[in-house]
Write a protein that binds this DNA or RNA. Structure first.
Lengths: 177, 177
DNA sequence: GCAGCTTGTTGAATTCCATTCAACAGGATA
DNA sequence: TATCCTGTTGAATGGAATTCAACAAGCTGC
């Protein structure tokens, strides 16, 4: 019992740090948020972070997981839509978090934890998109390439913001054929 | 006369540093190449770099320019090809430099010089692609979206390496319609 | 109810960056 | 010959992530 109580405390504190990191990483960026800043915002000493996380990348992974599950429930609660509309929704919805997407891509070569998170995330996204396109009656032999192109396009839209008009045109063009 | 001689020397030395930086940035990465390392490889003290460049980002821009003009002449010397083949060529040819592409994307929010270089580069690439697609007889109303999608797809292929097979399938799918 | 282990927490290093500063050397200039 | 301009440098500076050794309690077995 006591042990369980302890572990609850530990997880709560960890979650608190993740909550703070989530705001800072998203609003100011991962690189711009130093461990010191994160720590002082969370009300602890810098090295305390290292009691709960191996390194800064592990904090990022925790933030990514938190953010992903939040977004995922929003997505699953979405009403019926055409694939193009869903794509546009995703592109727009991920925009708030585009800084993090860039950070993941830039760190995945150096950080194994981020690399494996990234792989899992792509596998998940592509699986969902594949299903979506199948249900929309896209020719099966076109689906694999289209899945990749769509994922790349969403990433591109996040990295290079465009006016709503063009985003819509692009999403429509993608699923038109 | 003396003045001209001096400026030649200056440019030669600068080019020497760029040549060293080009190798290091491409083979080991921008972040992994410290100014100290760059300097010692070039046979000079770390702070000497700052006599020729404002900061590390400016060194990167010089490297990018050097690399771009080298690639551009290769591209222009290419024999006749279908747009899909050209796309594949570009994707494969840029692979050696994919680390730099990632670095540009991750630094463009923080560094004005890199940001303007990036904008210029995209404007140039998109213009060339647009021309290519026009000549291939793509329906004019589809071209703008297709240009963006193609650029995003090439960036995606650089960030997420795929087997040659799939790259080819994706490039073909892009220009099929 | 006390000795000792475990879990957190911390201040103070350590190391590695990019970047700056002040001094210096040597050729060009007057 | 005296001075200036162009390069070059050794030695800071400041900030980053991360580590280390010490300390504080609470819990555990006796």
């Amino acid at each position: 019992m006591a042990r369980i109580k302890r572990e609850q405390d530990r997880d709560e504190k960890r979650d608190e740090i993740v909550a703070v990191a989530r705001v800072l990483f998203i609003e100011e960026g991962y690189e711009a948020t130093s461990i010191s800043r994160l720590a002082s915002t969370a009300g602890v000493a810098p090295n305390t972070i290292y009691w709960y996380f191996k390194d800064k990348d592990e904090v990022l992974v925790a933030v990514l997981d938190a953010e992903l599950s939040a977004r995922m429930s929003e997505y699953l609660a979405l009403p019926a839509m055409s694939p193009a509309e869903r794509l546009l929704w995703v592109a727009n919805n991920l925009e708030r978090v585009s800084r993090l997407v860039g950070t993941v891509h830039s760190r995945l070569a150096q950080s194994p934890v981020i690399n494996t998170w990234h792989e899992r995330f792509h596998a998940l996204s592509e699986e969902m998109l594949r299903l979506e396109l199948q249900q929309a009656g896209i020719a099966p032999n076109k689906i694999e390439a289209l899945v990749k192109i769509s994922v790349f396009t969403i990433e591109g839209l996040l990295a290079h913001p465009l006016p709503e008009e063009q985003k819509r045109a692009i999403c429509n063009a993608l699923v038109a054929n």
